[in-house]
Amino acid sequence: MINQLANLNWVSVLLAFAAYFILGALWFTLFFSKPYKISLGRENETLPNKPIFIIGPALCSLVITIASAILFYTLNISSFNAALEFSLLIGFGFLVANTVNIAINPNIPRPILYGIISGSYHLAGILMISVILLIMK
């Protein structure tokens, strides 16, 4: 599978990454800021914006995008229906499930709310990645 790196349309990968990262910034700071803070038990606080809280998610989004592109090309996804199936499988099977699993720990006071907010972001993100990869393949 790793040999697919040479076949990737890197412009589409970078565009999909940028879209995914920007979606995350908007998701957690604009669209769902208050519920996100509630899920963390910090509804009356300003969340920190140290570099790790920007660079870390950016790197994770890049890894998710590249891994998705490798799978996308390996599986030869070439239709919208196949891209949707891929998005739902990867979205629910890995991204949402892993997000909820991470949320279920003593440090997250509202794990289900956190899982819904963060998991739905990743599901929307993988769908967006897939559409961009498909259109630009």
Rank of each mutant, 00 (worst) to 15 (best):
G125S: 15
I52A: 04
L84T: 11
V11Y: 10
S33F: 02
S68R: 06
G119I: 09
Y121I: 04
N3A: 10
I126M: 07
W27F: 08
N101P: 01
I22Q: 03
A19M: 05
L15N: 08
E43A: 03
V13A: 05
T99S: 10
Y73R: 10
R42N: 03
M128V: 11
Y20N: 14
R110V: 04
S120E: 02
A18L: 15
T29C: 05
L23I: 10
M128C: 12
S79A: 09
A97V: 08
Y20S: 09
M1C: 04
A83G: 07
L26G: 15
I54E: 00
L95G: 06
N49P: 00
P109E: 02
A69T: 08
K50S: 11
P48D: 08
K137M: 06
I116F: 05
G24W: 03
L8V: 12
L75S: 02
M136D: 14
I77E: 03
P51A: 08
A69E: 09
I38D: 06
I104L: 10
C60K: 03
F80P: 01
S130D: 14
F31H: 08
I22D: 04
Y36R: 12
S87D: 04
T29G: 10
P48V: 08
I112K: 10
L71F: 08
N49K: 14
I90E: 08
Q4T: 10
S61L: 01
S61Q: 01
S39G: 04
M128P: 07
Y121L: 14
G93D: 06
E85D: 06
G91S: 11
F92W: 04
L71E: 07
F86K: 10
S78L: 02
A58N: 10
S120Y: 02
L127G: 15
F21I: 07
I129P: 02
A82C: 05
L47R: 12
A16L: 01
S39W: 07
A82I: 02
A25N: 09
L62N: 00
A83W: 05
I38T: 07
I117T: 02
Y121T: 06
F80M: 14
A16S: 09
L127E: 05
S130A: 15
P57D: 13
A83R: 12
L8F: 05
F80H: 05
F31Y: 13
L23G: 00
P48T: 14
R42I: 06
K50N: 13
G125V: 05
A67W: 04
L59D: 00
I135C: 06
G125E: 01
L89N: 13
A82R: 08
I102H: 12
I126T: 14
L95D: 02
N9R: 13
K137R: 13
